[in-house]
Nucleic acid binder design. Structure first.
Length: 207
DNA sequence: GGATGATCATAT
DNA sequence: ATATGATCATCC
């Protein structure tokens, strides 16, 4: 947390310079740049494994882009969605729960008019879901997984879920991954991801 | 302007 | 191929 608080008030340019990381002209071809910069600055270690960033202390690191009004500007990607072998999956042992049990949120200015190097980092927040929010997340997750297990892939829209929604997470719309179809048959479907709606991240940041 | 769907880069 | 890091682009 000391390392995290040290970032508060600094610009992305200052941190990038300190880490000897080049600053891209824009984020169109570097969408994960801010998150990766924070990982480097804080020494995150999970790599691309499906576990929290700071595995030994059970802390997931998330940058949260703020708009000109300093409110969350985008949804937050949580994890990939399993589209096969969903039978027997439980919330208690899910990747989503493992990651959301404790999250270090690092707000970062993201208004397009601010040059990347000048964007300021806000005060990080170490958060765990309240029992109420946890129950909502669990209900969302269970409804999503049940639909997937039943092969109702055509019903998977971003409209579902109070806090946790499912959206594409793919190379492009032609991308396919193995999935369970109707009657338990095997098919191929667009890869999806779990995302947190801004209604939740706004609450988390007290905005 | 916000929500939904589409997409980019990198690691293993 | 599938995971990570997300933001971009379009539609309403």
């Amino acid at each position: 947390m000391d390392s995290a608080y040290f970032l508060a008030g600094k610009t992305l340019g200052e941190i990038a310079h300190r880490q000897a990381i080049p600053i891209p002209p824009n984020l169109k071809r570097a969408k994960g740049w801010v998150g990766e910069l924070l990982e480097a600055a804080l020494g995150a270690s999970a790599g691309s494994r499906p576990v929290p960033d700071f595995e030994s202390i059970g802390v997931e690191l998330k940058s949260i882009p703020l708009n000109a009004r300093h409110k969350p500007q985008e949804s937050t990607f949580v994890s990939s969605v399993p589209l096969i072998d969903t039978v027997g999956l439980k919330w208690s042992s899910s990747v989503v729960k493992a990651k959301l049990d404790r999250v270090l949120w690092v707000p970062v200015e993201a208004a397009h008019r601010i040059p990347i190097a000048n964007r300021r980092i806000g005060r990080p927040i170490l958060w765990s879901p309240s029992p109420e929010d946890s129950a909502i997340l669990q209900a969302d997750w269970e409804e999503h997984i049940e639909r997937i297990a039943l092969g109702k892939l055509d019903e998977l829209g971003a409209q579902l879920g109070t806090y946790l929604q499912i959206r594409p997470k793919a190379l492009n719309k032609q991308d396919r991954t193995p999935a369970t179809g109707g009657n338990g048959t095997r098919t191929a479907a667009l890869p999806r991801g779990f995302y947190l709606r801004t209604i939740l991240t706004r609450k988390i940041l007290n905005l």
